[in-house]
Amino acid sequence: MDIAAQLVLNADVTGQVLVGFLKRELGRFGFTKAVLNLSGGLDSALSCFLIAEALGGENVLTLLLPYRTSAQESTDHALEVVKLTGVNHKVIDITPMVDPYLNQNPDMDGVRRGNVMARMRMILLYDHSVLWNGLAIGTSNKTELLLGYGTIFGDMACAINPLGDLYKTQVRQMARAVGVPESIVQKAPSADLWAGQTDEGELGFTYVEVDKLLYLLVDERYSRDDAIRAGFDARFVDTVLRRIRNSQFKRMLPVIAKVSRRDVGHDFLYPRDWGT
């Protein structure tokens, strides 16, 4: 099987589904506006293009939330997206909000510092969700969700997510198709928490490689041994499987201890879109 070919998508039909989904999901709860955080990276750029198409740029508020160590290039790229999509924007430096806490904990490692920044951005996102009367749009893609490469209640927090079933390499295809600038499409994906950080450097493998493996494991239901027989290195397969398993909690609501005959977590099973 040519696995890369299986990840090629028709951008028109994919866009039609995703834009239709955004319109309908917001509209059914009476929302005409949305808010999202723009990092200057690929995922939030694509989310921004999609939500701007769904609602019109004038109904979208984007937040550019740099920390003092963020690359200027990130803000520049985010502003380019703002210009191209006609969305509203605010630039808010999160340094004065984040640093008092970091300064109290000088021994914090990169992960903890990154989590604090991601969660501060979430606080601003949800505060503006109320201020702007718009729902928070997510930007996590399928690759990140499966690998658990995100901060729970941080960058993973949102009301609805148009990208969660697109692998990173598919996000790239869609981004190109909707007109995200090449400078954003081609740059190395990064959480931009410190200078020179890249996703692929941190993860230890490339998105192109891991997307192919995830496609086999998840979409095609390959077992570990099937994937190895298909040509993937055993250590790579094990690393990815471990990441998926260890991050399962991030993809679910907190587990509830059942004691009654009907509880919210197990058998009070109503659709989210109830009555709409």
């Binding site: 299986q6 090629v8 998508l9 028709n10 028109d12 039909v13 994919t14 589904v17 598919q170």
Partner: peptide, 11 residues
């Protein structure tokens, strides 16, 4: 329910 992306127009 629609599912299954490919280069084709139809899911």
């Amino acid at each position: 329910p629609g599912r299954g992306l490919s280069p084709e127009v139809a899911l």
